[in-house]
Amino acid sequence: MDRQNVLTALEKALTDVLERPVTGLTGDVKLFDDLHLDSTTMLEMLMALEDSIGLVVDPEDLDADDFVSVDTFTDFVLASRLGQVTA
């Protein structure tokens, strides 16, 4: 999986979570300030990615610094284990 795949999956996840189309994301977009995600919607985003790309979430690995921007979050996904896709 490369950055572009992650970005596409992220756009789809955010579209579901925010209940409106999210397209054209770039790496410097801030999750809190620009997309207005909060702690609940951040978690919903993780859930959506578990289903779509099989992201394996290890609660011990989640760090606030990974949830700053699209870039930091993409790095986190690329460094994570990917398991089975359920949807």
Binding site: F32, S39, T40, L43, P59, E60, L62, D63, F67, V68
Partner: peptide
């Protein structure tokens, strides 16, 4: 807000939390 988001479990562990006042989310 960021620490209590997805990293909540890790943050609780790091702080040595014994009590968590919360809301449903």
């Amino acid at each position: 807000v960021a620490e209590a988001g997805p990293p909540l479990l890790r943050s609780l562990e790091a702080a040595g939390a014994t009590v968590l006042p919360g809301v449903p989310s």
